[in-house]
Design a protein around this nucleic acid. Structure first.
Length: 344
DNA sequence: AACTCGGGGGC
DNA sequence: GCCCCAGAGTT
């Protein structure tokens, strides 16, 4: 059962959140700017990513690519290198594409209109709302996981956040409490959701709106938000051949149609002539959100120049070494393997 | 509407 | 082990 939500009854909640934010805002590098480029980058970096995890990447990214033009003129592999270890690598590829889009379609000026921002690669409803509200004063709710959590608890609303229309539903709820400044409100909701209204162990005692929170009054905070779609984890196995000779090893670049888009990897298979060169194998386990990977890595030591030269004559393969590999983005387990193998 | 995309951290 | 994190694109 949902309480009837009339339009003007809840505005004081947003004002309390705003007041709390003015005193308790987190000190973050993108907080004292309205540069749409920097806000855009930070919104992409922090999609599905904790602040603590992404801060270093954000700072390095902005330092190397301080504006749209610099980013658009950069090599895609260097952009992906700056995403190394962050995951969801299509974000890096799309950021790069979008920067070129801004150069060609918007004359290098970051678009100020919500619908224009929405046309950028990798920018969806959330990011377009965040950038347009924070940087250009548009009245949009940047509905993310924090909004789902805070609003579902305040209103004890059991709307399933895994439904496709959850964004528009909670956007309407957000407007019930949103003060004049949507940009500040959006950021306030993120900090409240992160610092107080946490997924587990919420700090309700220090919440500025605990008096207004229906879930808190009912003692049912832990029951919100409601999410029916569960994450399914499957086991998956991979094989790699670490083909090497004299501190050099063979790698190739992945495609963009699978996990680890455009990252580098060892050889997934070798010709039968190379089988006799296999020395040993070790298995590395790696957990992803949707898969448990078991990666078997065969050590293939080539002790013949003739064979080695035959291998590296293949133009699709890359001869790498430790120093070269540091300038490329590898999947985490393969990066670890390189570290562990070459430090001996 | 369902599926896919990473890696890290909290409990 | 399970869930979540400043979500978006594809099918």
């Amino acid at each position: 059962m949902k309480p009837k939500k009339n339009s003007t009854d809840f505005l004081h909640i947003g004002h309390k959140i705003q007041t709390w934010y003015s005193k308790n805002a987190r000190d973050l590098p993108f907080r004292n700017t309205k540069d749409p480029y920097k806000i855009w980058i930070c919104e992409i970096v922090f999609q599905q990513t904790r602040i603590a995890q992404g801060l270093g990447h954000y700072n390095r990214f902005i330092e190397r690519f301080p504006d749209v033009k610099t980013l658009a003129e950069a090599n895609e592999n260097e952009v992906i290198l700056h995403w190394k270890g962050l995951g969801y690598y299509s974000r890096a590829i799309n950021i790069h594409k979008a920067s070129k889009q801004i150069m060609t379609e918007f004359s290098g000026i970051f678009p100020s209109d919500y619908d224009d921002i929405l046309t950028l690669k990798g920018v969806g409803k959330y990011t377009a709302a965040a950038v347009s509200s924070i940087c250009f004063g548009e009245r949009r709710a940047a509905v993310d996981g924090n909004f789902y959590r805070v609003l579902s608890r305040i209103f004890a609303d059991d709307f399933d956040v895994s439904q496709t229309n959850a964004f528009s539903y909670f956007s309407e709820l957000a407007f019930l409490i949103m003060p004049e400044n949507a940009g500040d409100f959006n950021q306030a909701m993120m900090d409240l959701g992160s610092e107080i209204c946490r997924p587990k162990n919420p700090d309700c005692g220090n919440c500025p709106v605990n008096d207004d929170c229906l879930a808190f009054a009912l003692g049912k905070v832990s029951e919100f938000p409601v999410k029916t779609k569960k994450v399914k984890v499957e086991n998956h196995s991979l094989k790699y051949y670490f083909v090497h000779r004299n501190n050099q090893f063979i790698i190739q670049q992945r495609g963009d149609d699978d996990i680890w888009k455009k990252l580098y990897e060892f050889l997934p298979e070798i010709s039968s002539e190379l089988v006799p060169f296999i020395k040993n194998a070790k298995t590395v386990n790696h957990k992803l959100t949707h898969r448990n990977l078991s990666i078997e890595i065969f050590d293939v030591e080539i002790n013949s120049d003739l064979v080695w030269n035959e291998i590296i004559s293949n133009k699709n393969l890359i001869v790498s070494d430790f120093e070269d590999s540091q300038k490329r983005s590898f999947p985490k387990p393969l990066e670890n393997y390189i570290q562990n193998t070459l430090k001996d």
